[in-house]
Every structure is written in structure tokens, then in C-alpha cells.
Simulated assay, not measured.
Amino acid sequence: MIAYLQQKGFPEVALHFVEDERIRFNLALESGNIGVAVASATQINEKDLWYRLGVEALRQGNSGIVEFAYQQTKNFERLSFLYLITGNLDKLSKLMKIAEVKNNVMGQFHNALYLGDVKERVKILENAGHLPLAYITASVHGLTDVAERLAAELGDNVPTLPEGKTPSLLMPPSPVMCGGDWPLLRVSKEYLKEDLRVQPEEVRLMKKKM
């Protein structure tokens, strides 16, 4: 019966007849029922299921569930980008601190870029031993004191900057809608009543399968 309903395009109906959590998860994703999918994923707790849940939640614009799914798999790169596109800069700053504690230099630098935090970028480059890049970054963004200190350390190896160029800070564009889930359109379920009118022959086949 479950397979029959699924083949007919009614996974949301088949969902009510299933107890196996893995099957419930698959049917919930197929029917777009995020709530049931979260409950099943929590029971099973496998990385692949959390990833699939995150993909479906992102498709529906449910940023809260996307965040929860990424947190379960500790996918900090995807979390950073999620916070960037939703304008959640406070949590993005916290992720940058977490990356620093975990000694994840690349993750820390990416988050500093997303935040437009020049001082943090200079500090990361300097700590990583990239003094010429740290000097250039400090110079073009007006951090004169830091640039002079780095120039003294570089000595004769101070890189030259192009003349006649006006530097500008690259900042990610502001998101259209900050935080919150995307608004969803309510769909009437009247079509379901019409399509679920099973013909006598189909009833006989269903009973035979059961």
C-alpha cells in the first residue's frame, strides 16, 4: 500500500502508514515535510541524512533547519556562507573565533573576508608569516601604524604598491532579507480529495498486495 501511494504521487499520505524511521525520512523529504524529516534524522543521526535534510531545508528557505543540520555535521564552511547570505554577522563573528580556537587559519581568514574585518585579516596574515601580504593589506586600507611596523620588519623586502590607484574595501552586498525563513505560499488540499478517489479495481489490487 505504501509503495502504491508513493507511485501515485502521494508520499505525504504514505507517511502516515510508516513506522520505520529511515523510510519516514525519505517520504518526508519527498513530500517536503521538514518537521517529520527532522524528527527521523534526529533518531537515526547519520551525517548523510543531515546533509540531505540541509539541502531540502535550503530549497524551502527554512534557514533555521539549515543551520541546525549544518551544526549537527559541524559543517562550518556552509554555516559561514549561510550566515553571510542571511546577514547574521554576529554568528559569523562567533564562527571566526571558533576557527581561531581550532587553529583553522583558512576558515578564520574566509570569515574575516565575509565580515570585511581588515584588522583581523592583517593579523591572520602576519601570524601565518605572510608579512608582505599583511603589509599590502594594511597599507591599502589606511592602517598606517601597522603598515609602518611591518615595513620595519621587512626591511629591504618591502613590496611596492602601484601608483595612481585608489584602494577600496571589498564588502559583501547586504542580503535582501536578513534572518528568518522565506515566506511560503499556502496550497489548498482540495486536489488531494479529488485525486484520492480510488476506483474499485484499484481497491481490489491494493487489498491483494496487502
Rank of each mutant, 00 (worst) to 15 (best):
S80N: 12
M96Y: 00
A112M: 01
V146R: 15
D117R: 01
G32F: 05
G32Q: 07
D117M: 00
S168E: 12
Q108Y: 01
L125K: 07
P172Q: 12
T137W: 01
N127D: 14
K102T: 11
E56F: 00
L169T: 12
G61M: 03
Y70D: 00
S80L: 01
F68V: 07
A128F: 12
S168Y: 08
L150E: 04
E46Q: 15
E77N: 14
I44K: 11
S40P: 06
H110S: 15
S168P: 00
G107A: 09
I98G: 06
K119I: 04
L95F: 07
G164A: 08
L95Q: 12
L92C: 08
L49I: 07
E67P: 04
F76P: 00
A134S: 09
K165T: 11
L154S: 11
S40Q: 09
R121V: 00
L143K: 03
D117I: 00
Y70C: 09
E30A: 15
N103A: 13
L133A: 15
S139P: 03
L89D: 11
Y83S: 00
L131Y: 11
K97A: 14
S31T: 10
G87N: 06
R149K: 13
E46F: 07
D145V: 14
K165I: 14
L125F: 01
D156V: 10
G164C: 08
Q71N: 14
S139V: 07
E163Y: 08
P162I: 06
M171A: 10
G61C: 09
F109R: 14
A112H: 00
Q108G: 04
A39Y: 02
I65A: 10
D48E: 13
D90S: 14
L161S: 10
P172S: 11
A147N: 08
